[in-house]
Design a protein around this nucleic acid. Structure first.
Length: 264
DNA sequence: TCTCGTGTTTCTTG
DNA sequence: TCAAGAAACACGAG
């Protein structure tokens, strides 16, 4: 379920490898997730290299090694795990970095994920062009307002999923933001009032902060009164007013909302 | 057997 | 050139 908070959680799993060298690199290098890079490039860049640090921004992660940076995007079904040093990879374990004390494993059954590599001088281009974090100072009310104006014809649900302005927001977080802001997901972005646009800004940050403090920290549940706990099944009830939740496709994605709290 | 999907990229249409 | 929507990608879960 890799949205921003889950991505941060997975990054922390692999970060136990910081300070240690990679002894061996094993993978299914023909898999789609490696498009654009070759087995030779990756094995060459990482074998013997020490992991020096890692960061996540939105849904993108970077793992820094001496002489190389590896980017990982988890797609829909990707996950990172830490296994014993004698781990033998299964069908969907597409990349394994063996270290002395553990094996760092990237698995992805649907192969929508992506591995990126940058060697040489300067910051990796795919990292440098990441949009500013929603908790950063650059993510201002004004930036949100002008983005909503530019995307005025699209439903707000679809706009919240646009990584160029809302990096890390995924399907459940978008639904949560709209429910907390009491805005109907199908509302055209250009029809939101200034107050509603500000509520989008505020709740984007609030939901992100809380998700990082729970899911992102230790995979614990988000606050008990969130929509999150009710939106998954066919039938759920609004945790605020008790009305049965609506469910449908908005902006091409499955969406859950409260027909009473979130008026069109 | 059949439908669905926590994401992005590319194609098509306007 | 831009914006919006749909299709494509691949495969396990229910």
């Amino acid at each position: 379920m890799p949205e921003l908070a889950e991505v941060e959680y997975f990054r922390k799993q692999w970060s136990v490898g910081e300070g240690e060298r990679v002894l061996r690199v094993v993978g299914h290098f023909q898999a789609r997730i490696f498009r654009g890079i070759t087995e030779h490039e990756l094995v060459d860049a990482l074998t013997g290299a020490k992991m020096t640090g890692s960061e996540s921004r939105g849904k993108q992660m970077i793992f820094r090694f001496a002489g190389a940076n590896v980017g990982i995007h988890l797609g829909m079904t990707g996950k990172l795990s830490v296994e014993k040093p004698d781990f033998s990879p299964g069908k969907h374990d597409h990349l394994v970095l063996y270290q002395k004390k553990q094996a760092l494993v990237f698995s992805d059954s649907r192969l929508f994920g992506r591995v990126l590599l940058h060697t040489g001088k300067g910051e990796a281009p795919w990292w440098a062009k990441q949009a500013p974090d929603v908790l950063s100072e650059e993510f201002t009310k004004k930036a949100v307002e002008s983005f909503l104006e530019r995307r005025k014809g699209a439903p707000i649900k679809a706009v919240l999923l646009m990584q160029e302005r809302f990096p890390g927001i995924g399907n459940w977080m978008a639904d949560e933001i709209l429910w907390q802001a009491r805005i109907h997901p199908a509302t055209r972005s250009g029809e939101l009032t200034k107050e509603e646009a500000d509520a989008i800004w505020k709740m984007t940050r609030h939901v992100t902060r809380e998700a990082l403090a729970t899911v992102g920290k230790d995979w614990s549940d988000p606050p008990a009164d969130w929509l999150f706990h009710h939106r998954w099944g066919r039938k759920g009830n609004c945790p605020r007013c008790g009305v049965e939740l609506e469910r449908g496709e908005v902006g091409g994605r499955t969406t859950s909302w409260c027909g009473k709290c979130q008026k069109p």
